[in-house]
Amino acid sequence: MIASSLRRVMTAEDVFSVLTLLRRAEVDVWIGGGWGIDALIGAQTRDHRDLDLMHRQEQEAAVVAALSEAGFAESLSWRPIRFVVTAPDGREIDLHPLVFGGDGSATQASPEPERPFIYPSSCFVTGTVKGTTVPCLSAEQQVYFHQGYAPTDRDRHDMAQLHRIFGITTHF
């Protein structure tokens, strides 16, 4: 595992680099978390310590192979829910495998197997990072994932941004 002292922020250029690698591997991904919220807003509002990506579970081998070729190695496994890959310079990508249904909706395993995380087809949208269109999760889906736990300062910041731009009511 990469030591946390090596962790560095994930820049917009890093986001583009990762998305380019994965596009070349012909896999589908959507940005979630902090970068996903900033993509919805169309501006970077804070530093990001990682990049959260949702991917098609059946494409996971291609995702891992493409990131491995770029120097990323698995540093945390909470499969089937999620796993993290880390580059030698400390950049981290938090990967979330999704199983898609015929209607375009998806599910992700959760700590409670009988209650998977639900992704309606309408949550797969686009945003922009530095003026470039990127695939991301909707504002409503971001709010959904920020429930049921004690929020950090970053979470409060992100939800405040969604409220400011979209008028969405959040629980904190």
Rank of each mutant, 00 (worst) to 15 (best):
A3F: 10
S4I: 13
S5E: 12
R7C: 14
T11H: 03
E13W: 08
S17H: 11
E26C: 11
V29Q: 11
W30M: 08
W30G: 05
G33T: 08
W35M: 14
W35G: 13
I37Y: 06
I37S: 09
D38Y: 03
A39Q: 03
L40D: 00
G42N: 06
A43Y: 04
Q44R: 15
H48N: 03
H48M: 02
D50I: 00
D50V: 01
D50T: 00
D52W: 00
M54H: 06
H55N: 10
R56L: 07
Q57E: 12
S68N: 05
S68L: 02
A70V: 03
A70M: 03
F72M: 03
F72Y: 15
E74F: 08
L76A: 12
L76F: 07
L76H: 04
L76P: 02
R79P: 03
P80A: 07
I81T: 09
I81A: 10
I81H: 09
V84C: 07
R91N: 06
L98I: 06
V99G: 08
G101Q: 14
E112Y: 14
E114W: 10
P116S: 14
F117G: 12
I118H: 15
I118V: 14
I118Y: 12
Y119G: 10
S122H: 15
T126V: 14
T126W: 10
G127A: 00
G127F: 04
K130D: 15
K130I: 13
T132P: 01
T133A: 14
V134H: 12
C136K: 05
A139P: 12
A139H: 01
E140T: 08
E140I: 09
Q141D: 10
V143N: 01
V143W: 11
V143K: 06
F145N: 15
G148V: 05
G148Q: 11
P151C: 04
T152W: 03
D153M: 11
D153A: 15
R154N: 09
D155V: 10
D155E: 07
D155T: 01
R156E: 03
M159S: 01
H163E: 14
R164S: 15
I165M: 02
I168T: 06
T169I: 11
T170I: 13
H171L: 09
H171V: 07
